[in-house]
Simulated scan of single mutants.
Amino acid sequence: MKRLSVLAAVVLIGYICHYDIKNGTIPSSYTEQPAQEVMNMTKEAVDENSKSYNIVKVRAGDTVLSIMEQLIKGPIPVPIDQLIKDFKHLNEIEPEEIQVGKEYKFPTYK
C-alpha cells in the first residue's frame, strides 16, 4: 500500500510539473496600450524621437523579461542586455526596481 501511495504521489507531481511548464500558472491578461507615435523599430537602441512601445501595468510575479515574452508571445528577438538598455531608456528606472501596480513602457521589437 505504501508503494502505491508513493507511486501516485510521484505521478501527481510529474503531472503538475508538466502542466506548469506547458501552460504556466500566471494569467496573461495584460492591458496593452500602444503609444501615440508608433513607428517601425529595428533591433537597434530605442531612439528618443522615434519610439515604439507598449504601456503595461505590472502585476505580482512579473519581471521585465516575462512581460516582454508575453507581449511578443515567444522569446525576445534581441539580447537581454539590449532589452535592459531600451527599458532603462524608456522608463529611466532599473528593471529590478519595477513595482506592482505601476505602468511602464516596454519597447516593441519586430
Rank of each mutant, 00 (worst) to 15 (best):
N54F: 06
M68A: 05
L71H: 07
Q33W: 00
Q33K: 13
A45W: 06
I72F: 10
T42A: 08
K43E: 10
L65E: 09
V58P: 01
V46I: 15
S28D: 11
N23W: 03
K22S: 12
G74D: 06
I26P: 00
K22V: 09
E32W: 00
E44C: 03
N49P: 04
E32Y: 01
V38L: 09
Q36T: 07
D47I: 10
S29T: 11
S52I: 05
N23A: 05
N23D: 05
K22Q: 12
T31G: 10
M41Q: 11
K22I: 03
M41H: 14
T42D: 12
M41W: 10
S50R: 14
E48Q: 08
A60M: 06
S50V: 10
S29F: 10
S50F: 14
K22T: 14
I55A: 09
Y30L: 14
V58E: 00
L71S: 07
P27F: 05
N49G: 02
R59A: 03
E69F: 00
Y30W: 09
D47S: 12
E69M: 15
Q36P: 11
S52L: 08
V38R: 14
S28P: 01
D47P: 02
G74Y: 10
I26D: 01
E48P: 08
K73G: 01
P77V: 07
R59S: 03
I76K: 06
Q33R: 11
I67L: 13
K57G: 08
T25Y: 10
L71P: 07
L71D: 03
E44S: 12
V46S: 10
G61R: 11
G74W: 11
I26T: 12
P34M: 05
A35Y: 09
V58S: 03
Q70H: 10
L65N: 02
P75K: 14
S29Q: 11
Q36N: 11
S66A: 03
I55M: 10
S66E: 07
Q33F: 01
M68P: 04
E48K: 15
P27D: 09
Q70V: 08
A45I: 05
N49R: 13
T25P: 00
P34D: 07
E69C: 06
E69S: 01
N49I: 08
Q33E: 11
K57H: 04
R59C: 00
R59P: 00
V46E: 08
S29H: 12
S50D: 07
G24I: 09
V56D: 01
I72N: 14
K51E: 08
G74K: 05
K73S: 10
G24Q: 02
T42Q: 11
M68Q: 15
G24W: 11
M39S: 03
V64T: 04
S29M: 04
T63I: 02
T31I: 04
Q70L: 02
Y30A: 01
N23T: 10
Q70Y: 11
K51C: 01
I26V: 14
S66D: 07
V38P: 04
N54I: 05
S50M: 09
I26K: 07
M39E: 07
V56Q: 01
S28T: 12
V38F: 14
I72S: 01
P34G: 05
V58I: 15
K57C: 04
E32L: 14
E44T: 12
P77N: 06
A35L: 03
K22L: 06
I76V: 15
N40F: 15
M68S: 13
T63Y: 01
I55T: 15
S66G: 03
